[in-house]
């Protein structure tokens, strides 16, 4: 397989995952607001903080009001991370891959892209915020289903898996970090109803609420949420699961390329992250500082990305 093709596959998958994650975030934030008992002055500001869009937003707008944040976050083409921009970037990559993708997958990506060209705030008025994001999430599920059902499991699929899982692991850590540091109302609220509702929202944005309840029952507790989203080996949006999948795919890629296994080696960024996710408990992580753990996790994800780039995607 051409290096350029591997690069397009990796980035197409990453951008699709990023777009989906952002659709989930916006949806959950909206629900939080609807259910929230105490209105905050800038209830949409956390969305910008989680995604790191705050600075760019401030260049265009003063007040982070609902309509502006939603527009910026969803439609704004000048925001390179808006959902529309992510879909457009995914589609640009897919365009270079048309001959490698199933026609069903290409058609679905291209149709979604063409729809985003017509997006404006009016869609929220027509479909409602809930309806819009719900439909969008279904589109991503369809994309995942089509990929799953129509693509051969080969090295090309593995490059997509690496992109998807790396992006997802990074997003899980951002999601947890945001809740722990930014959404906390007051110190004495910890463990209270608002806190529990917010943790439930975090779970929901990872499509994890029902799965969590199956494991831990109805009780929402910080330590268990952290345990579930970081360390659960079987839930498809836990960090542990993502890194397991990433390692499996990366191992097959190195085999197929006839390279000595380096990505998964014990001292490598990926090996270190995998070890941390397999051998640590939520109790320990919280005691030592969740934020520090998550920051290190994000750094390792960046390092994994550069290692894959150097070994397989770079041209010269």
């Amino acid at each position: 397989m051409l290096r350029r093709i591997a690069d397009h596959l990796f980035w197409m998958a990453r951008y699709l995952e990023r777009a989906e994650w952002r659709a989930r975030l916006a949806d959950v934030n909206y629900h939080l607001l609807v259910e929230s008992p105490a209105p905050e002055p800038h209830p949409w500001a956390p969305l910008l903080a989680i995604t790191g869009d705050g600075e760019l937003f401030a260049q265009f707008h003063d007040e982070p009001g609902e309509a502006r944040v939603l527009d910026f976050f969803t439609f704004q083409t000048r925001n390179p991370s808006s959902i529309r921009s992510c879909i457009s970037a995914a589609r640009d990559n897919a365009r270079n891959l048309r001959h490698r993708l199933s026609s069903e997958l290409w058609l679905e990506i291209n149709t979604l892209y063409l729809e985003t060209q017509g997006w404006s705030h009016a869609v929220f008025e027509q479909q409602g915020v809930y309806g819009f994001f719900n439909e969008l999430r279904n589109r991503f599920h369809r994309l995942a289903g089509i990929s799953h059902a129509t693509l051969p499991r080969d090295i090309e699929y593995d490059f997509m898996t690496v992109g998807t899982m790396l992006e997802r692991a990074e997003n899980v850590s951002r999601l947890l970090d945001s809740k722990y540091h930014r959404l906390l109302p007051r110190l004495e609220d910890v463990g209270g109803p608002v806190d529990r509702m917010q943790w439930a929202a975090v779970l929901r944005s990872a499509s994890a609420l029902e799965a969590y309840r199956r494991v831990y029952g109805n009780q929402i507790a910080v330590q268990r949420v952290v345990e579930f989203l970081l360390f659960d080996p079987g839930f498809p949006r836990s960090a542990r699961f993502c890194i397991d999948q990433l390692q499996a795919a990366a191992g097959r890629i190195e085999d197929a390329a006839g390279r000595a296994p380096a990505i998964n080696a014990p001292g490598s960024p990926c090996g270190r992250l995998a070890a941390a996710l397999r051998n640590t408990s939520a109790h320990r992580v919280i005691a030592d500082g969740l934020h520090e753990f998550l920051m290190e996790m994000q750094d390792l994800c960046v390092e994994i990305g550069s290692m894959i780039f150097d070994r397989y995607l770079r041209f010269e």
Partner: peptide, 23 residues
């Protein structure tokens, strides 16, 4: 067949090659 761009190709020892993940 493979769809290539110029940057995917390289000439060496009077032959033409494409740059793949495996070399």
């Amino acid at each position: 067949v493979e769809l290539v761009e110029g940057r995917d190709l390289v000439c060496a020892d009077h032959k033409l090659y494409m740059k793949t993940v495996g070399g």
